[in-house]
Design a protein around this nucleic acid. Sequence first.
DNA 1: ATGACGTCCTGCCTGC
DNA 2: TGCAGGCAGGACGTCA
Length: 274
Amino acid sequence: MPELPEVETIKRELQTLLTGKTIVRCRVMRPDIIGYPETREFKRRIRNQVITRIHRRAKYLLMDLAGGSTLIFHLRLSGALLVKTKGKISRHARIVFLLNDGSNLIFDEPRVLGRAYLINKDEQPHVLKGFHELSYEPISPEFDLAYFAKNLGKRKAIIKSVLLDQKVCAGVGNIYSDEALFRAGIRPFRRASRLKPAEIFKLLLALKDVLHLGIKHLGTSVSDYRRVNEQTGNFQKMLRVYAQEGKPCKVCGTPIVVKKIGNRGTRYCPKCQK
DNA sequence: ATGACGTCCTGCCTGC
DNA sequence: TGCAGGCAGGACGTCA
């Protein structure tokens, strides 16, 4: 699923392919993929807009348009942004943006959980509440020991849930939270407020480390994540616990286990993680 | 305010 | 072979 490193990879690829191009118009196959505004208005506002800048905030991908509005995507679990000049359009294409050079930007999303938004400059609609509540990203300089320790200290929830909280660790998802906890040697079920200072520091470094590694290796393709040309990332080859259940731990040989936390699978080594 | 949990949605996998 | 049911999971709403 696209988390911070995957969206960062997609962003970098789209920057070279789309910056300066014009969205002539779009075709919407599934109106419910549009979070805001309603479909007719979305299609009307998107016409003949020049893409001036492409950037990223946590797991959101943003395209600034010359008219002052921003096209925002959240890919959720299975979304992809594909650029194609020819070939047939996949059956999971939900929105197709026709560009002035004849190529297409395709918002492909099998599970229809992802969303596209078109937001005017001075508009702060409640539909993007989560976006405005995002905290620092672990790879940013502001995400330091003081910030992390303060936010973990006031939370009684288990550490895994806190890592997934976008109001604490913006951009972190299931893959990188499991990987960071493994590298820090911390069990996902530990209460956040009960972690020792040394553990918080190790976890901080592990989080920064796995996210940077994920970016360096162009993301993790274990299920649905695809880059703009449909190629995969490479970080799945370096995973130590995520999608490794049943396999021996690379450090101690103990089989990696998977347990439910909330409604999501959590993988860890029962021996290495205390 | 916080934490726990259900819901959305579809494709894929499993088991009968 | 065919199909029902379970599962995956990020964000968000609801409830205690």
